[in-house]
Design a protein around this nucleic acid. Structure first.
Lengths: 338, 338
DNA sequence: TTGAAAGCGCTAACAG
DNA sequence: CTGTTAGCGCTTTCAA
């Protein structure tokens, strides 16, 4: 069955295609009579206007790109869902792109999105190569960064104050009485992770507390890798009483390492994560973590993206949101020991 | 900066657009010399062919639609990731559509995808309305159903033997010695859930064991709802020694209900889930569950979709995969009691 | 109010 | 080998 086009509708309704187009888009003046007739025919023929064709005429494609490290990571899949709903309510659809934080993938996807003339791109993944992005921006593809930032990219961004998040984590642990702490960070030079670590260390520093050698380890962002990283930390002669993990995935790895080593959480070891994903509510003990106001962030980012797409060439914005400490069960007072 | 078109490249390289097109697509014969020149120019001008324009010529859009109930549900986000990777390796991008199993959303998305002339649609969500799908199929949009099935839809489908999955769960519990069991099922009339329950009951039936009244409860597919459902089950005068949940999300709810009621798992209560999502590895105790060979299923489905898109109008296929029992920590022998 | 016609960027014959 | 030309389905002047 051939797809029905605007021509079919026009012919059937006994008008010109221009009139059909006008009727559909509410442009120009179309007599009520003809319009009704046209809509009736469209209905009968099950006519669906081709987004492709109208996009070719320079109209919008009503398609957005979303770049994130990995959709199957709950933190990002939650973002994806929020973006999708927002987009959907405005008539857009979203192409999801998992980059694994790998630059080649980022570039390939960016190219793909450009070729498909998406109306905008939301970036929630690391970007070493700001150049490509700048090129895109020049071609007037609206871009906004979410929960990530890249110094050399000139695009709106809405992010969490990661430094403060790290500080929050540290203060919580400090307040509980911890003094010997450790950190599991991320391998990739992800700016947010780096800031989280910096914030954490700074808060300790302010209390005159330092981190011992070897008590910061980096790891891939997977449970298994996080577990391994935590294991090395737990094997130290003077085991830390608390571990700060720069995201929930890592924290879960740490939880598992502790369980396997027979170390009770939070009695013998406190663990704190970051992101407040669904995972943190599911573990046992449930994970204390730092929450980013993701829904709001996505909403803001989306707003910027669409506004931009509509031609508003507002000046570059950088919106920073405040993270929040969510205390659950994985942190507690350190037990007194040597 | 205006987007550079094939005309710009042609002019700059001193050839016709046809030659450029041929060079790009490796069609016809283009002398090496010109081709090199053309590629050089493309590079310099940063030319990106417009998928839009070539799609309008009846070529592929290299875009696929993926309909699932909810990307933020780990089971589906894992599917999404697999699909995305496969698609990506073939040059496709995928539009993710979360339907919440709601028919209106399904329809709206399907329309959207049609308008965007996607090359194919993967459906992993419930479908009451087979009609729309049939229409699409007639318009020769390839469709394949994954992990779901709809009787009145004529499309390929690759699914798990859910009945057998239910049986597997029952047999495991039976072997452990359980006799008083209960089920948490899903609200929506999702065919797979229904089959899982049927399989479970059938296995019990074969052993001459029945389910008591009120020991099957339905629930929305959320942790909270699963928890509530499990709570009612656990309040029965003769509490079940094992609960079969038709998916991991529900099982986690059950886990939490047990924890809150002070019932130890698996000592006092066995819980078994379905899907083998990342969640099941994260809980404590880790969840015994039934795994579907999702990677393979997605691979098969994707293959069918693409092959179909390439014009092969193969006869309708229905591939059924075998589920597998994954024993972890949430199931064990029932403790002897009243 | 309506319609004819000119593209949007690209591909596919069909001539040279 | 290479260029010319006619669309793909739609929007948009510009006349009528």
């Amino acid at each position: 069955m051939k797809t029905t086009t605007i021509y079919d509708v026009a012919k059937e309704a006994g008008v010109s295609i221009a009139t059909v187009s006008n009727a559909i888009n509410g442009k120009g003046k179309v007599s009520k009579k003809k319009r009704d007739e046209i809509f009736k025919v469209m209905e009968r023929l099950q006519y669906q206007p081709s987004v492709i064709a109208s996009a070719l005429m320079g109209k919008k494609t009503y398609t957005l790109g979303l770049l994130i490290p990995d959709v199957s990571n709950p933190f990002f899949s939650e973002i994806a869902r929020t973006v999708e709903d927002l987009a959907h309510s405005e008539g857009y659809s979203v192409i999801v792109c998992s980059t694994d934080n790998r630059n080649e993938r980022v570039e390939k996807y960016l190219r793909l999105l450009e070729q498909k003339s998406v109306d905008g791109i939301l970036i929630g993944t690391g970007m070493e190569n700001g150049e490509l992005l700048t090129q895109l921006a020049e071609k007037s593809v609206p871009i906004v960064m979410i929960a990530r930032e890249s110094a050399d990219v000139s695009a709106h961004s809405v992010l969490t104050d990661d430094f403060k998040g790290g500080t929050l984590a540290a203060e919580h642990l400090l307040e509980l009485g911890h003094r010997r702490m450790a950190i599991v960070s991320e391998n990739f030079e992800v700016s947010s992770s780096i800031e989280r670590v910096r914030g954490f260390r700074f808060a300790l520093f302010e209390k005159g507390i330092g981190l011992e050698d070897g008590s910061i380890v980096s790891s891939d962002s997977s449970i298994k890798a996080g577990k391994k990283a935590a294991e090395t930390l737990l094997q130290a002669t003077e085991r830390p009483t608390a571990i700060f993990c720069v995201n929930d995935i890592l924290a879960i790895g740490a939880l598992q390492a502790a369980k396997e080593a027979g170390i009770r959480v939070p009695e013998q070891l406190s663990i704190i994560g970051f992101d407040d994903t669904i995972l943190s509510t599911v573990t046992n003990p449930a994970l204390t973590t730092i929450a980013q106001p993701m829904d709001q962030m996505v909403k803001l980012a989306f707003g910027l993206l669409i506004k931009d797409a509509d031609g508003d060439d507002a000046i570059r914005q950088r919106i920073v949101m405040s993270p929040e400490l969510i205390v659950r069960e994985s942190t507690g007072k350190p037990t007194l020991e040597a």
